[in-house]
Nucleic acid binder design. Structure first.
Lengths: 224, 224
DNA sequence: CTCCCTGTGTTGTTCAAACAACAGACAATT
DNA sequence: AATTGTCTGTTGTTTGAACAACACAGGGAG
């Protein structure tokens, strides 16, 4: 378990041997779930975040009419419900279920935050990591919002490609999504996006082959 | 200054008198800006978050072609750049400028996180508050994404109204936005939304007058 | 009172995106 | 080689949202 944890962002920079001490210090709880079990129910309140150790969890939500949508999944090593665990008293707007037999480690956030009586030296690092996890999630969400703010498919693609180019420091970059995933990320129809991509190539805005893109002519454009 | 700070979410639960001690302990820096001054430049890296004490700051961003958009404003007592300050080394994707003459208090996040040599008793509370601020921002962003995930105006309104009804615990509730602001929040055209609202009223889904809404018939609907 | 301003609802037109259906490329499997 | 499935690009149709323009109702301020 410690080996897996040491590679997660929450325990980054903490040695495997030190993690064992931390887990004792935090009285972390491990629980097993069968496929289909509810891990967190919508509307409930939690002070604990979860880390998937094995298996897979699904995050979903229901609207007032009973329609429910899948928001995402949580793979081993990834964290869930950290946002709610960090907001005291905020009832979950989502529910988390086990997509298969799943083992989860729970960490009580207030325990994480309270000063450790043993003056555990890695506690500080854990708190910093937790803040980073939350901040990074905020960052990713705001990027997604920025990329879906344009009303046109072309505008959304341009916004996303701009970001990719900035992140890679070059006009040539690769993207981590296939076409369907990119369309889902940008909130557009795949085939419409595919067609728009080829239009953009014809218009000389971009070149691409598969997941390799080249952003051309960084001049001024008004019609995003 | 302490009076203003004590009413902010970052210093919530900390007395005015205690804030003074904290600010010393953190070596907080106060700086003045003239209207139009750049507070944070896009692409720069910061370890500090900012709190607007007076005036107003503007958050904006540029895409690779030089088009820039306003993302929001920061009023006195509100925090900015906290997400970037919490992600070590992450260059800002936004820039922050003074919309008018503005005073800003800077707090170094790593200093906030490092154990205070004086064992300052309110330090722990500050860290917890900072985590709450980040988590709450994440929460708000994911709500907005949920409400803009539907492709139709009606679906977006339904998602938002669902959330409002849940939050208020009743099918009758008030919304904090006027029509233009709601349209901006949901990423749709105001007049189209206005027209959709009256259609929904005609269809018996909702009743409304001004900002007072009543959500009807919580049955099953497929056409969101 | 009139004038102006803001917020809101209505209508009709236009256009772009969703949608459906299909074709070709490629890889993996049998 | 044949088959299957996945990913991608193309085309044509339909629909719904953006857009523009306007009407109407308060609410101040002069």
């Amino acid at each position: 378990m410690e080996l897996l944890l040491s590679s997660t962002s929450l325990f980054q920079g903490i040695q495997e041997s030190e993690i064992s001490a931390l887990l004792n210090c935090l009285a972390a709880q491990k629980r097993n779930y069968r496929k289909g079990d509810v891990i967190f129910a919508e509307g409930s309140v939690t002070e604990s975040l979860g880390i998937v150790l094995s298996g897979m969890a699904l995050i979903s939500f229901c609207d007032a009419w009973g329609n429910h949508s899948i928001l995402g999944n949580v793979a081993p090593g990834e964290v869930f419900a950290e946002v709610y665990a960090c907001i005291p008293g905020e009832p979950l707007r989502i529910s988390v279920d086990a997509a298969e037999d799943t083992t989860v480690l729970f960490l009580n956030v207030s325990r994480v935050l309270s000063t450790c009586t043993n003056a555990c030296p890695f506690h500080t690092r854990l708190v910093r990591n937790l803040l980073t996890v939350c901040a990074r999630k905020s960052f990713q969400l705001s990027q997604r919002i920025a990329h879906t703010s344009s009303k046109s498919i072309r505008g959304r693609l341009m916004s996303y490609f701009s970001e990719c180019a900035k992140a890679s420091g070059s006009h040539r970059f690769q993207i981590p999504y296939n076409r369907q995933q990119l369309a889902d990320y940008l909130g557009v129809d795949r085939s419409a996006m595919s067609s728009e991509l080829s239009k953009m190539q014809r218009d000389g805005l971009i070149c691409y082959q598969r997941n390799e893109f080249l952003l051309k002519s960084p001049g001024e454009f008004a019609s995003l």
